[in-house]
């Protein structure tokens, strides 16, 4: 195996594990600012991973993808979310349904399940094997966070982390799809955040605070 490939392997693994850690860390965080910071770090790592791969694979379109990711997920979306959080004056997440130690254990179990089942399910080789497994783990842990947390803003951050995991999966499966599609998907995510922001302020107006336990009018 040429030396360059070994370098790529260890660097991509290092970065993707960093992404996984930021998502796992979400389980033990309480303050909204920390949630936002975890998301920002996660997005920056994703952009870094794309840039590194672009460098080693010598693929120009990956540089564009990295730049788009950096600007949209690393700068614009955190900025918009920070504005929403400040406007709505939410500082802390309330105590989740499942306590911190247990949710950390469940997250680890999810990672183990993904690693053991994906090694049989889908055949993939090369340096993207590990990123793919990490990405599916990120998607599942984010889903878990969305289910257990009660604040609407936390759900939005969980959804955005899920999209990051999805991008990582797409990246590992396709080595970066054609740029136009990526732009379109980023645009969709951005639109989604804006619309969710509108809803968050709407919920604030109609429900006084953003506790999702109070959204229980519609049943049956």
């Amino acid at each position: 195996m040429p030396k360059a490939w070994v370098v790529v392997y260890s660097i991509t693994d290092f970065i993707t594990i960093g992404m996984l850690l930021t998502v796992v860390a979400m389980n033990s965080l309480k303050r909204m600012e920390s949630f936002l910071r975890a998301y920002t770090i996660n997005s920056l790592l994703l952009a870094l991973l794309m840039a590194v791969s672009a460098f080693y694979l010598d693929a120009a379109h990956l540089y564009i993808a990295a730049a788009v990711t950096l600007v949209s997920k690393g700068v614009v979306i955190p900025f918009l979310l920070k504005k929403v959080v400040r406007q709505l004056k939410i500082t802390h997440e309330v105590e989740p349904n499942i306590n911190t130690p247990l949710s950390l254990v469940i997250s680890s179990i999810l990672v183990v399940v993904v690693y053991s089942s994906l090694s049989r399910g889908i055949f993939i080789e090369g340096f993207t094997e590990n990123p793919l497994k990490v990405s599916i783990s990120i998607i599942l842990i984010s889903l878990f966070i969305m289910i257990t947390r009660k604040k609407a803003v936390t759900q939005v951050i969980g959804l955005l982390l899920m999209e990051n995991g999805l991008f990582l999966a797409g990246f590992s499966l396709t080595y970066g799809m054609s740029t136009i599609i990526e732009l379109g998907v980023v645009f969709d995510v951005l639109m989604g955040v804006i619309i969710l922001g509108v809803f968050l302020s709407q919920i604030k107006k109609t429900f006084i605070d953003l506790d999702l336990d109070k959204l229980t009018t519609l049943k049956g």
Binding site: M146, A152, Q155, L159, G192, I195, L196, F199, Q202, I203, K205, T206, F207, L215, T217, L218
Partner: peptide, 14 residues
């Protein structure tokens, strides 16, 4: 923009 319609829209979009 009623309580119930905001709840339905939130559930829908998420």
């Amino acid at each position: 923009r009623k309580r119930s319609s905001v709840e339905a829209a939130w559930k829908y979009i998420i």
